[in-house]
Amino acid sequence: MIDLRSLYQDVILDHSRNPRNSGALELHSHEANGNNPLCGDKVRVYMQVGNGKIDDIRFEAKGCAISVASASMMTELIKGVEIGEARAAFARFHEIVTRKGDISDEELEALDKLAALIGVREFPMRIKCATLPWHAMTAALDGVDGDVTTE
């Protein structure tokens, strides 16, 4: 049960039940879909970007607790930040959840609230759930038309 609790921490369950910034963003400059064909998780990310900054971000998701919580936390984390900073946050997060080795306290701190998601490291099949919304966000910034998948 201990390892399951590390995956399904209270903060994750809270975000999955009460996702922040959930629902379409009427006025947006960027959008993209993320699909996980393995489990059918779907997320759509909308952003309003101006002067290199993510002024607003919202998402619609149909998926598991991990993907919805990750999307919710992502929107909180990158709303109002520079594009480069958002991309860097994903790069950091992605590197850490897919890394086999230990994580330092400094790295954990740098993850901010995403630290709650690192339990997925023990569940390899679930890492894609946690990264799916971020892939969609990046695809939206890149102007990728259509769907991105985690495959």
Binding site: D3, Y8, C39, G63, C64, I66, C129
Partner: peptide, 13 residues
């Protein structure tokens, strides 16, 4: 209220 993917992970453990 629980996604099948989450059910599967917990059942697996």
């Amino acid at each position: 209220d629980v996604h099948p993917h989450d059910v599967g992970t917990i059942l697996d453990r």
